[in-house]
């Protein structure tokens, strides 16, 4: 059994870092040599989920405040790939966002739904002053 690999990153609360974090997530997905599925597709989905989660935290939970920070943890094992995104804001109502059904003419509201469609487990928890969006992809 392989050991769990964990990468912890802290970025300023700014969208210009979305691409950088997405690429790190892609690299970690590509490194999962024991994954039997389509690794290219998995890497794209992890990039996308990271981008959606971070954009949501930067723009909504942290209200675009450039002085705040966002902490991200990405960990992998043979069994799962788990992403945690920490915010220091007022949080958001993930249940309401997950139930919102964007119709064709809506410009927004698809981000959290995309996360739910692509990940196997999604939780938003509160721990010691932090809000943490936890998203897990089961690999085996």
């Amino acid at each position: 059994m392989s050991k769990r690999v964990e990468v912890d990153i802290t970025i300023p609360n700014q969208t210009k870092y979305l691409g950088m974090i997405g690429r790190i997530g892609e690299s970690m997905a590509y490194s999962l040599k024991s994954y039997n599925g389509n690794r290219r597709e998995l890497a794209y989905h992890i990039n996308l989920v990271l981008t959606e989660a971070l954009a949501n935290v930067i723009n909504h939970a942290n209200k675009c405040d450039p002085d705040k920070e966002v902490k991200i943890s990405i960990s992998t094992s043979d069994q799962d790939l788990t992403i945690k995104v920490f915010d220091q804001g007022e949080g958001f109502d993930i249940d309401a966002l997950s139930k919102f059904n964007a119709d064709a003419s809506d410009e927004g509201g698809r981000g959290i739904q995309i996360i739910y469609k692509l990940m196997d487990q999604v939780k938003y928890i509160h721990d010691d002053g932090d809000n943490i969006l936890v998203m897990t992809k089961i690999l085996q």
Binding site: G22, Y44, A55, R110
Partner: peptide, 16 residues
């Protein structure tokens, strides 16, 4: 190569 929900939203805005 990559588009997220904000990119899709911009295209929906243009379409509308």
């Amino acid at each position: 190569r990559f588009i997220d929900s904000s990119g899709l939203g911009a295209l929906v805005s243009g379409f509308k």
